[in-house]
Design a protein around this nucleic acid. Structure first.
Lengths: 333, 333
DNA sequence: GCAGGTCATCGAAGCGCTTCGACGCGAAGG
DNA sequence: CCTTCGCGTCGAAGCGCTTCGATGACCTGC
């Protein structure tokens, strides 16, 4: 049983190969009757265009690369939601997704781009000084970045507006009458790596706190229960008047609540807690956390759309910031 | 700047196109001098073979599909480790990985296979009665499954030997002199879905417990802290003599320890706890959990190897069970 | 010293598809 | 009535690569 080719379809429908191609691509007008005949033949024979041949002739592989930082330190649920939404959205545009890990580095990107395996690139977890960015600028293939490098000039970047998110949290705590607040952030290694989003959150938070005249501070925060516990203990020792906490660290959020409980602080009576994390984590915590969600699905969808637009040759904004949304739950009032 | 083709390389090296091809594929003997000349030209010109053309001519895309269950209920870190190891291993065989979500279903598999987009398939999270299995049997493309359907006849399946894992846990607890033990498993929805590994663990556990003459039981277990807490409370009420616990649920493992602490049971003095989960979770828990790790990386590597072997036309075992390893930590003695 | 065999290389035929230019035909316009 | 146009369709030329058979050149061994 040989695989069905476009020539088989053409013969079966009694038309030329090119006619079948035009029916399938819609790039030229075809009469309704012919179109229907061809479509029927396609169905009857179970025809699927050969991806390689199509790519070769059209110079479009209909595949995009998704470069994921498959290493420790990232929040997995978010990554997954993101990946899912990228795959789903790409399929809506009739594209598939090639999975790459960041540790293939710039060479890997160059390889898939140069071999025309993919038409475009989606890079996640872009760092401030990302070695891949200079390459991207040189590449013919369009790319969309999740996150912002130091100089986004000429690139296309998408992200949650973390500065607004940080500010939103501070605003909320201020509204609740909390006067002394602290931001518990990512593990210190993340800051050292210069991942932009952590810093932008801090900046937005600090700005809003200052605007409200609050006493505010920001601490990095590790992810194991013991380390979180120790950090919260130190925090409460240094800031006995602490009444508001923003946790920008998905893995630590649950532990923070546990630590506060053990250390005799009631949430939300004594301390209001707000997290910047995916909804599922916030909801599962006890008490449920007021949170600004990282809209991983939106980011993925938006990123794919931008990439598709670029593939069409349309021009797109350099920077797309997604508006954060605060959901109020039990942990703050 | 047109992209460099094999013809450019041939001209630059002063040889025929086919010679370049043979140098690159190694499928025919080429003299050392010619080979070197060609390789130099490749380097100088920055040649990358066009993936589409290669696929078309050779009928090999050098891409495999990885079908991931990107939905709730799976353990994300494990999934990630697995995905990473698949991508890394595939690259070692000079293959790339196309990411697919399970929700494209059998049609999606058929599409990528029929369009020759991929040469083979790797399916994760195979269920007992998986609708994709009949399709796989019909497909020309080789496939490797992670997990076991009801009838693995004619397929190629890889998994941790969960029965041995369950038994290993029971053995360990018996060795410690624990006489009354319980297995806390996956959320009940997982059992209802008929995911084989959960049941096989239970079977192995029960068999070993019986062999040691232990009083044993098995409970499903949800994943939120509150539900875990409630379940553990109920468990202790019903089985006041409980002295050994096996937790086969990565998300709940940490919560179980917390619940025991709150309910006044010391670990490991009163209750020894063993988990079946990735090492990182076991290590991060407090006290650190004795655990049987799910060797996600091994599974991924092994699965890719099997798939590559099948692509070479070699015959491979229908079933590959990976031996579990128990790591003893603080939570049991 | 020549038949037979290697070894290294070449040329050309596809692989299955897209796309461009051409063509025939009926309708519209002069 | 003849030209012009546009619509629907066709044929053929690639796209860049692999692979098969062919061709010399060079050894062997009798």
């Amino acid at each position: 049983m040989r695989t069905v080719t476009i020539a088989d379809v053409a013969k079966h429908a009694g038309v030329a190969v090119s006619t079948v191609s035009y029916v399938l691509s819609g790039k030229r007008a075809i009469s309704a009757t012919t179109r229907q005949r061809v479509l029927d033949s396609v169905r009857v024979l179970g025809y699927h265009p050969n991806a390689g041949a199509r790519a070769l002739a059209s110079k479009r592989a209909k595949v995009i690369a998704l470069v994921l930082p498959l290493r420790a330190g990232m929040n997995l649920p978010v990554l997954m939601q993101f990946a899912t939404s990228v795959v789903t959205t790409a399929r809506q545009y009739d594209h598939d997704v090639l999975l790459m890990t960041a540790d293939e580095g710039p060479d890997g990107l160059h390889r898939v781009a140069a071999s025309a395996l993919v038409d475009g690139l989606l890079l996640m977890d872009v760092e401030i000084h990302d070695p891949r960015v200079p390459l991207l600028r040189r590449l013919a293939e369009p790319a969309v970045l999740i996150g912002f490098p130091a100089d986004p000039e000429g690139l296309t970047c998408v992200d949650l507006d973390f500065a607004r998110a940080g500010a939103l949290c501070a605003d909320h705590l201020a509204d609740l009458g909390r006067r002394e607040i602290v931001l518990l952030g990512a593990p210190s290694v993340v800051y050292e790596r210069g991942t932009g989003f952590a810093e932008r959150t801090m900046a937005g938070f600090a700005e809003a706190a200052a605007r409200h005249g609050l006493k505010a501070g920001a601490w990095p925060c590790e992810e194991s229960f013991d380390e979180v516990h120790a950090a919260v203990k130190r925090l409460l020792d240094e800031r006995p008047g602490l009444s508001g906490l923003v946790v920008h660290n998905e893995a630590a959020a649950g532990h923070v609540l546990g630590a506060l409980r053990i250390l005799g602080r009631r949430v939300p009576e004594d301390v209001s807690v707000v997290a910047i994390c995916p909804d599922d984590i916030a909801e599962r915590a006890s008490p449920a956390l007021t949170s600004v969600l990282v809209p991983a699905e939106d980011v993925g969808r938006q990123a794919v759309r931008l990439l598709m637009a670029k593939l069409e040759g349309q021009s797109v904004p350099e920077s797309t910031l997604l508006e954060p949304r605060l959901t109020i739950r039990e942990s703050s009032r």
